[in-house]
Design a protein around this nucleic acid. Structure first.
Length: 294
DNA sequence: GCGTCCAGGTCTACC
DNA sequence: GGTAGACCTGGACGC
């Protein structure tokens, strides 16, 4: 069956699907042209997960699912797709700010700035820890092993992202010997236990009223989450007054704005400071401008 | 084939 | 509060 989802006028499917590396991490998949985003979604504890294919259509999205789904499951798919592709994020003020500067005016024209995210903060959190202190290829390998081994098989192929409860039940040896996550293994085990027991409400970060520095402090209470990981997560919950500097951003900044020489973090911060609460998003758009030709 | 470096960093101990 | 050293893994690179 096909589900149609209306999108805002400034929405750009390709820019969103390819906004950062998440589309390459299971249970997401992206085609070579960045025109079809696939994803396995949970549609209820008593139903098999479903594999959906999302493509851009005029004025909206087409979400294809194998077979038919009951109304409640259709509603869950709609909700997840809207959340993942940030369809309800208010970016009008951001685009107005970007349009004021010639070097950033393309952002509003292109409809860039929607950062793809998972249906749950828990998944984004686990994946973010998988990006730290390793190559991108190792990140993909660790996430794939986690999803394939612990995720539920889906109708239409693939596996869902495992829940915190599933991770909590897995032995520490799984994270070490199967996932091969190295020193991160006890971090995942501890995090999953805290989330599954209800001690830690990471989904609440989406609607938290804490000021960003306090929310960042709360995020850093999770083992394996430092400055970069917390700031990356902040962007994924809609806070852009942080930069999330990592080695890739630093080297890209050096190439684009510093004649190939390494720049101090303070210099990078100064470069984007004028964008205030949008500086993190302005930086990311700047770094990824050439990923897609206008 | 082997050793070294380092990648989309973080933690701990120590000062 | 700032910093050195340790930490898993695996791909790239030099020899």
């Amino acid at each position: 069956m096909n589900i149609t989802i209306r999108t805002p006028p400034d929405f750009n499917f390709k820019r969103t699907a390819a906004s950062h590396g998440w589309s390459e991490l299971l249970p997401f998949r992206i085609d070579d042209k960045w025109s079809k985003l696939s994803r396995v979604l949970d549609v209820g504890a008593n139903r098999k997960p479903v594999s959906v294919e999302i493509t851009g259509a005029k004025g909206g999205l087409r979400v294809s699912v194998e077979g038919e789904l009951p109304p409640a499951a259709v509603e869950k798919v709609r909700r997840d797709v809207r959340h993942m592709l940030r369809l309800d994020d208010p970016l009008g003020v951001f685009y107005a700010e970007m349009a004021k500067e010639p070097a950033f005016a393309w952002v509003a024209r292109a409809g860039a700035g929607r950062l793809l995210r998972a249906p749950t903060v828990f998944e984004d959190l686990v994946k973010t820890v998988c990006t730290t202190n390793c190559s991108w290829s190792l990140t993909k390998t660790m996430v794939s092993r986690l999803v394939v081994n612990l995720g539920r098989p889906a109708r239409g192929g693939g596996h869902s992202f495992p829940t915190a409860a599933t991770l909590a039940e897995a032995p520490l040896s799984f994270f070490r010997e199967e996932m091969r996550s190295g020193y991160r293994a006890p971090y995942f085990k501890e995090l999953a236990g805290r989330v599954a027991s209800g001690e830690l409400d990471v989904e609440g970060w989406l609607t938290s009223e804490l000021p960003t520095p306090e929310l960042k402090r709360a995020m850093k209470q999770v083992k394996g989450v430092g400055d970069y990981a917390a700031e990356n997560l902040l962007k994924l919950v809609g806070r852009y007054d942080v930069l999330a500097l990592d080695s890739w951003v630093r080297s890209t900044y050096a190439r684009l704005h510093n004649q190939g020489r390494a720049a101090a973090d303070k210099k990078i911060a100064r470069h984007y400071a004028r964008f205030r609460e949008w500086r993190g998003l302005a930086l990311w758009c700047d770094m990824t401008k050439d990923w897609i030709k206008e």
